[in-house]
Design a protein around this nucleic acid. Structure first.
Lengths: 222, 222, 222, 222
DNA sequence: TATGAATGAGGATTCATTCAT
DNA sequence: TATGAATGAATCCTCATTCAT
């Protein structure tokens, strides 16, 4: 029981801080549970009850922290997008390190991040636009960002004469397809057909994208 | 004058034939509506009501033709898989037509089929394994078939010396990824049609897969 | 094509008679099927489809003969009640045949009838008054009739000095209970614990009802 | 200040206890309503809506307490069987109290219990084996128990020379029939209460079962 | 802030009955 | 009269969200 104004403010401050810390703690506790549930039940099949059981909290408690079930998942998705953006670095053409090596390092980092967040990554990889406009926009922005990153890599590659000219849009699409399918098959799949290493995948992927399959001749002009 | 169902069926008084025609007509009407709904609402989010509104029939009518919404969708999926299987033809190395040309024709046919069945194609392209084991198995079988077809193409290509050696499994995955993303982006997407022609897509796709991006040198060995 | 009024009337009469005969035939066909269905699925669980499958007719055909599913069953119930009423004969005290023998013959006939119409009999034996007021009244009338028959037997028995005085209502109830339970257990049950003969049952039943269990003394006055 | 469900349960801050009390209260409220509905609509014809209207609760509320309408009824049935088992006491032949008196007391207690639980008792009295095997078994077990009790009473009666020899199985069936019909008619019927007292019924029932109807002679041997 | 009982909209399925041919 | 496609009311069940304590 405070006796002076100052003491009252102090003690109130302490209580407020304490309360905020507890709140943050709860928030994180729910997010951790949400990640488990997202992974075990999937974005659309997960119910609030799944989340409550996992987090070991009551219904009302959850609604004190999030406006709804999907909101908790959406927070996870946003976190993932942010981490991914931070992970990818533009190729520095002035660097000592060969551009291909830089590229491969980028790919490896992406692969690692997806492996660590398989559930969220899987959600993005197989996303099918639905009713939820906000979510659609979210995912579209995500892919637009990826395409822009691939685009700038292609630009510098062409500028440096490392990449032969060609239709930019088609190529972006193809590259995205390779990456998505590789991640789906080797990283994020339930049975994730074991891989020698993430580096191996990145190497094979780059080799294919750069050299193609052809032994030499142009098969289209017999 | 027929007195029992069996006798009635025997007698070709037109009533039975008429009923059968009506029945088949309704069946097709429902399938058409189902394709729309599958496309607009998605396999899992579509409700019976969506389908009824689209087909403009009563609940009971639907159940007289299908045991449930999913069953109607599954019929569409099976039809599509069958058509796809009939569409793809193995590359004939003894033919006068260059293998690349044959390949491109295959790709074009697949592209055309997907364009005609955008809703169903979209389902396969974005399928994410879920709770329903039967459906999972269905889709997995579908992709296993595709991989096997790509595999045999690679085998003949290598045998003929047209394709340089390399890890088969990785390549199949990458090729599948290119095809899937190309179809998703240019054929099946809501805002598709930014494409000059299906031939253009097939040509670009093959060019990329065969020649890769590289101007010449190996970017990985600085 | 009739040429004179008389011929027209004749031929029309023939056709009408023929049509009536066919109609009656169809009606009986449905009743036979209804008896099977009543026996295999029960009064309340039977659906129209069960009946149609059994009778091998179309829905509309059924409604041309009966106003609803239950109506077909109710016809069976009424037929049974009528047969039962015809089966039971009042004890003739002036006859040469001993009253007990007449009674036992009555019981045997009832037992035989129930054995032949197990499904319908079972319905009456286990009837529980429900929503359907008409049906309730139906069953109540059935039992009122039975009670009246038992009552008149008791009256003549008392008049003849064969039966000791006692409360009439209680006794009717008890006798009805014995008969119902005996029929339920030995005649109508699914596993109908095989009986030596219907006569055996009738004999045991009468012995119990007339003599009781007591060896001699009154157990209630220790 | 509790932070997880587990901690909250430990802390006796009253919230948890209050909730439990509320829960139990609702549970009982539903059971009371279920008894009414069972009585008015019957085990198989009662719908969830009947129960909800009677209990004046929402659908979800009901499902928070019972997995389905039948489950609520089954709870009532089990409670009744347990009470009945506790009510019936084997006749003690070594007691000062005459066996007949003991018997009559048993009967009176059963009559009282049935009068207090008319709805449930009525269900057992009119049960007709149906599709549901579990329920069939349940009811059969109930009656097997009753028969076994009657059987042991007959055994001691015969041993003591109070009951004349006779076929045991038939007698059990007849006695059960008398009891069931008596309860159906005087205790459980909608229009019941034409009875002076439960003791009167028990007395009449025993008198009939022990002495029978016959004035003296054997009516079967004319 | 935490709790969990209560709510009711929403979705799936069944089946008696109608009616055009 | 016979047919069977079509109907829609009635039922069951789930689950996100609210709200009094």
């Amino acid at each position: 029981m405070p006796h002076t104004k100052a003491e009252a403010a102090d003690s109130a401050d302490g209580r407020v801080l304490r309360a905020q810390a507890l709140r943050e703690q709860r928030y994180q506790q729910i997010l951790v549970a949400a990640a488990h549930v997202l992974s075990s039940r999937g974005y659309w099949d997960a119910t609030l009850k799944d989340l409550l059981d996992e987090a070991d909290i009551a219904r009302g408690t959850f609604y004190a922290h999030f406006p709804g079930v999907r909101a908790a998942f959406d927070t996870l998705l946003e976190q993932f997008v942010d981490e991914l953006a931070a992970t990818i670095q533009r190729v520095d053409v002035g660097s000592d390190i060969a551009p291909g090596i830089q590229l491969r390092a980028n790919i490896e980092r992406v692969v690692n991040l997806c492996a660590e967040n398989a559930a969220v990554a899987s959600f993005f990889l197989n996303y099918h636009p639905g009713e939820n406009e906000e979510l659609n926009a979210h995912v579209e922005r995500f892919y637009a960002r990826l395409r822009s990153l691939v685009n700038s890599s292609l630009t510098s590659g062409e500028t440096m004469g490392l990449i032969r000219p060609g239709d930019r849009e088609f190529r972006i699409t193809f590259i995205l397809g390779i990456i998505k399918e590789a991640l789906s098959t080797y990283i994020v799949a339930d049975d994730a057909a074991r891989l020698a290493s993430h580096t191996e995948l990145a190497t094979q992927l780059l080799d294919f994208a750069l050299q193609g399959l052809s032994a030499s001749a142009d098969l289209l002009t017999s």
